[in-house]
């Protein structure tokens, strides 16, 4: 593999954002994802290759290591920050349609629930897998989810809930969205949520971790 792309992958894995970033200490002063992405573009590597063979591989490894409990939430947050720094350079290519997302997911934490971190983590890993993420934030009403689905035809919906008292709002959101858009796929997650609960409320998918969400999206929500 191209050396620049390998470096990019490594920076995402290690959460090395840019040359100024003091983290990780052993890479202090060295280039980060930000610089390597720029260099890769300048070297003429096609943006799709930078995304697929650099960034997505890095984020996938992060997702897998998190699933295997080898790394923790802060490590994923840093990896996602490095990923975002590199993605900044790819943005113009998305805007000019040279690069295409695999699809769009509208995601949010349901009404009455302020827990943000899990949903954000899932969003970051999904974004790192080549999907466009529309993050509606926390405490999101069914109406707001529906409005976002109207605005993003063909999107998938992701719901997060951390409270047993707000899990019921997942059900009302699924009903509200599916009443108007029966074909929209909904994936749910959050610490107290289970596969069984997902089935009960008519959601299409459940995952206990970000990597599972990516697998669901890639296998069940892409046109081919």
């Amino acid at each position: 593999m191209n050396e620049l792309l390998e470096s990019l992958t490594r920076c995402v894995e290690r959460g090395k954002v840019n040359s100024k970033s003091p983290y990780p200490p052993d890479l202090k002063g060295q280039d980060g994802a930000d610089e390597f992405a720029r260099k890769a573009i300048d070297a003429g590597i096609p943006p799709q290759e930078i995304l697929s063979n650099g960034l997505i591989i890095g984020m996938q490894r992060v997702g897998e290591r998190f699933r295997n409990k080898e790394i923790f939430v802060p490590d994923v947050l840093m990896a996602a920050k490095a990923m975002a720094a590199a993605m900044g350079h790819l943005k113009p290519f998305f805007q000019s349609d040279i690069l295409k997302h695999k699809g769009t997911i509208v995601i949010g934490t349901v009404l009455g629930d302020l827990h943000d971190i899990g949903k954000k983590l899932v969003s970051m890993v999904i974004e790192g897998a080549g999907w466009e993420v529309v993050d509606l934030g926390t405490d999101v009403s069914p109406e707001k989810f529906l409005k976002a689905v109207d605005e993003h035809p063909g999107c998938v919906v992701g719901l997060s809930a951390l409270l047993t008292t707000t899990m019921v709002n997942m059900e009302s959101t699924v009903k509200h969205v599916k009443a108007k858009h029966p074909n929209v796929k909904v994936i749910i997650g959050g610490a107290p949520v289970t596969e069984e609960f997902a089935l009960k409320i008519g959601a299409d998918g459940y995952s206990s971790d970000p990597q599972g969400a990516v697998e669901f999206l890639n296998s069940r929500c892409t046109p081919n």
Binding site: G15, S21, P22, Y23, V73, P74, L77, M78, K81, D116, I117, K120
Partner: peptide, 13 residues
């Protein structure tokens, strides 16, 4: 904010 505090441990310990 917990998330910002986590990030600050990396960026401005």
């Amino acid at each position: 904010g917990i998330e910002d505090l986590i990030m600050a441990t990396f960026e401005d310990p």
